[in-house]
Design a protein around this nucleic acid. Structure first.
Lengths: 149, 149
DNA sequence: CCTAATTCCTAGTTATTAACTCGGATTTCA
DNA sequence: TGAAATCCGAGTTAATAACTAGGAATTAGG
């Protein structure tokens, strides 16, 4: 029941871009360096984020990536669902699966639905701007910045 | 971010036993037949449930399994966490990992914590008895019983 | 006592997915 | 023109999930 690296790395990436928002683009190389992650792997992830319309890219030398809209308008849910797909604890609650639609008497499905709803309501309520604000508060108290997975 | 078959099958198993609670034991063979799942695989799962004190076993011919306490006293969370481990979206929120404890400035960890808390509060609020009651309501409206994953 | 039915235990095997790499095409600034 | 970057699709490797196998221990019933 762990989130894959797609969602976790992806969120870190987007947070990097959020901090830089309004100050031009950032290259994947720099993002990868800052977060100490594989550049070629991040490339795959950001490709999905771009196709989902969350980041803009500028090709060629001096190119890079930037958020497509303000950090306040991008939620953690936008990012994670783009990279992980729906956060359903069971396939049966994704898209009203046909075989599940038949199962009118299913007792476990309502449970998976409640779990999914509660996860979504958490991640949809947090924006990149919230994360920036939290970082600001942390920095008021101590120097340096660090991350975990 | 899907629950593995451990948690899903395990919950189904426990629900079988819950319906039978107070009327003797049920053999693994019957549970597996009812749910159309592999008996040898379920054996592994129920072994953990037994060690966690959620079910009692009676060995030998005519033996089987039964809930160790009333369905109202067993939550979905008890079952799922036993079989899946903590439902943490990231390893870093499990047991206050040492390298994470250092990371006082981590911005993503609070998010994983909120997700985990919200999942736990859902699954801890549902008991096997609730599921039985829900089934009863469903059966008031239609014949037959079915499940999905 | 013997046998069949059951739980118990450990170690495998297989299938699937996650995580990451590679090679090269395309674009663009300087 | 060349270096720096994004873009794209396919391939590889490592880890884990899902399930199997074989047999020991236990116990009710004949």
């Amino acid at each position: 029941m762990i989130l894959s690296t797609k969602g976790r790395y992806g969120l870190k990436m987007m947070f990097e871009l959020a901090k830089k928002y309004g100050n031009g683009t950032m290259s994947l190389k720099d993002i990868a360096k800052n977060q100490e992650l594989s550049e070629t792997y991040l490339e795959q992830l950001i490709s999905h984020l771009r196709k989902a319309g969350l980041v803009n890219s500028i090709r060629g030398a001096q190119g890079g990536y930037e958020l497509s809209r303000a950090p306040v308008d991008i939620t953690v849910g936008d990012i994670i669902r783009t990279l992980e797909g729906p956060l359903a604890p069971s396939d049966c609650v994704v898209d009203n699966e046909p075989e599940c639609a038949k199962a009118g008497g299913c007792v476990t499905r309502p449970i998976w639905e409640k779990i999914m709803d509660s996860i979504n309501s958490v991640i949809d309520s947090i924006t990149l701007q919230d994360m920036i604000n939290d970082l600001q508060k942390l920095n008021d108290h101590k120097e340096g910045e660090s991350y975990c997975e």
